[in-house]
Amino acid sequence: MSQSANDVVIQAKGLTKKYKDFVAVDGIDFEVKRGESFGLLGPNGAGKSTTMKMISSVSQRTSGELKILGKEPNTHGPEIRAHLGVVPQKDLLDRELKVWENIFTYGRYFGLSRKFLKGKVDELLEFAQLTEKRNAKADDLSGGMQRRLAIARGLVNEPEILLLDEPTTGLDPQARHVLWDRLFRLKEQGVTLVITTHYMDEAEQLCDRLIVMDNGKIMAEGSPAELIKQYSSKEVVEVRFGTDKNEKTAEKLAGLADRIEVLPDRILLYTAKGEELLAQILESGLHPVTSLVRRSSLEDVFLRLTGRTLVD
């Protein structure tokens, strides 16, 4: 495989996947460069995981073009997969095997020697902070530890690209931060990361660049900062007046902000100066039950693009 610094490792053009009449991925175009951390952001059912399966060279596309590491996945699937690390949405660990055995047996599928794996397993356990759990059964690990084991297993072949499908779904905040730290270290070491997520904070933390997907299509593409700048304001004021009052109160707030979004539980006001706007609201005699000024996030970008929130 070529090793030049800025070469494209994944190239998709008009990538489409249909299941009978249902179009899961609808003609998307994107590129991922070596060493980049690339995200696919979208709600459940957006087509992220289907795209990931095509990138991981196990699911064949219906139409369009796809090149992974310069090769055609329909004809060179096993060859490409030899250089991919895959962390599936469900960990798919062998629950009956010990922690170290899960990594070791997985490494054997890549034809790695027992001698190489002996050292590699120790190194990966250390990296995943699982050394003390080395001889525990995978089934006995917490959710966060199982996720770290799945990542360690996905790294056993020293992949050029690590594919992570919803890496922190179901994990508690502490476990998520440990995982983000591990992934950030990998990125620093030059591993290309491709991550699907429906968590905007995760995408912001981990991704250099991302595509926002909905209904199988790409709604927007860019770095988190670029997307926020392009599709949202600098700050957002969130006010709650009560479920039955939000809609009516929003009419009174019209004109105060650059843009207003009325959600069932709150009103979002988009502006460059949040504190000033909140003061204006209070001065006008309106008294929200709760209020919050925050910076814009990818959630706001998604709301702007689709009219829906990411996590329904």
Partner: peptide, 15 residues
């Protein structure tokens, strides 16, 4: 905690 001794794409002989 430690980083990995990692050479992406070098460990496996695909064939």
């Amino acid at each position: 905690m430690s980083d990995l001794n990692f050479k992406p794409g070098q460990a496996v002989d695909p064939q």
